[in-house]
Write a protein that binds this DNA or RNA. Sequence first.
DNA 1: AGTATTGTCCCACTATTTGGAACAAATTGT
DNA 2: ACAATTTGTTCCAAATAGTGGGACAATACT
Lengths: 259, 259
Amino acid sequence: MGKEASRDGTVGKALDVLDQIAAFERPIRFSEILDCSPHPKATLYRLIQTLTNQGMLTYSEESGTYILGIRLVRLAHSAWRQSSLAPIARPFLDALAKDVGETLHLAQMDDGQVLYMDKRNAAEPVEMFSSAGKIGPGHSTGVGKAILAYMSPQNQSRALRRQSFYQYTSNTLTSEGALKIELTKIAKTGIAFDREEHEIGIICIAVPILNTRKHAIGAISLTSTTARNSLKSLQNYSKILQKTANQITQAAEDWQFPT
Amino acid sequence: MGKEASRDGTVGKALDVLDQIAAFERPIRFSEILDCSPHPKATLYRLIQTLTNQGMLTYSEESGTYILGIRLVRLAHSAWRQSSLAPIARPFLDALAKDVGETLHLAQMDDGQVLYMDKRNAAEPVEMFSSAGKIGPGHSTGVGKAILAYMSPQNQSRALRRQSFYQYTSNTLTSEGALKIELTKIAKTGIAFDREEHEIGIICIAVPILNTRKHAIGAISLTSTTARNSLKSLQNYSKILQKTANQITQAAEDWQFPT
DNA sequence: AGTATTGTCCCACTATTTGGAACAAATTGT
DNA sequence: ACAATTTGTTCCAAATAGTGGGACAATACT
């Protein structure tokens, strides 16, 4: 039909509605959803009712609003364990955290966006879903660039097309051309830096986690502030980061599910 | 049709498939799903294809297996922030953790099962099952019993019907009758104990988080080992736990989303 | 080669979804 | 208090999308 992508059936529509509700980061009325929905009222209504009594949405009687349901949290826990690098990478991240005492991130890429899967914070304890599942831009983060640099050409250009190139700071790379040049450099050195491109005062060094075909399946990063570190001093971490990334690669390869 | 509940349409079936795949905690073949599926081959096939190109499932070409997709993790992050008590409860849990130095859990109930939403680790981490999104049984955990005890009669009996009454240890309550008696006691005192009912050597004290209508919207628990504590000594924490629960109640009431 | 198993595709049949419109309930304005 | 407007829910005939038996292809066993 008219749309660019082949949206598959009722299920696809229902899932789109979930995304839409997730985008509003607050309880939301039926009519608000309707306003940004391509569906007619009755259709959307039934869709939402279905999702609600499936536990994917929660309806609040008092306020007449919808929020995402906790069934999603349950499902996501399984997804996190199954399809993220986090469980495999955990021991290595733990060891790395102990060594360096700085904030670490483990991220993967989903449809051009960075998806944080795990985190080690120098001070705070681990709280999974507050950090895991968080998304970030691909073009202006260390992990994003590290992964993009090691994608197959087709996947890379598809991912690049998804970038907003929103200018977070004066250092943000705001064009595909500029980013591509940067990615080529990263592909040569194997190291990506965030030079306050996402947030002033925040810098980071990141390395990709590669599979045997040298394509990125994720990335790890070490974040610091300009007050405590410089790009130069972050460089000192490159060796240990790469070592950890290699360990994770190895562990991921070795991990063949038993029966 | 023949089934007891009205399962709604294609969307319901698709979501059931997700649950099914989540239940296997490993990559899974098409035929394995088929074996435990009520749907004929062709139907299931299309369902899975739809879910796959929606990013709810990931297909591995090499091994021919499916796992849950990372789109779920992204969605769940929003769900966790929107529909869990965790963001609201966080500061109070932090404070409590600082005070008591023991392992804390924040949990809610989903369809009769306990869903852990947040966790604070003791200084000496007692590694046992648990992290956000993890599920547990309702009948044999402190948080589960605390929530069950403060449910409306209808919701309670529906939740009780969902219990497996699996006997984890010799202390597990294995019948609805026994559990009901326990719940009545809990409703009187406002405090629930796990007397090694889920795991030998692990005990806990839990209190419900109530709304204004005195129904549980969640629970918090403090877990320890029989090596370090006794049920009696856990009792000392009841005051501070209840105080924290009340604070969370208050915060949840006050938190009215701004426009 | 022969047989069994697993995965993909086809297409007539049918059940579900669709969405315009009517209706009900809650909100606002005069 | 009454009408007008906005918001939410239900109905039903037409249209569409889902269904599933079975054919077929691709591997894996004997």
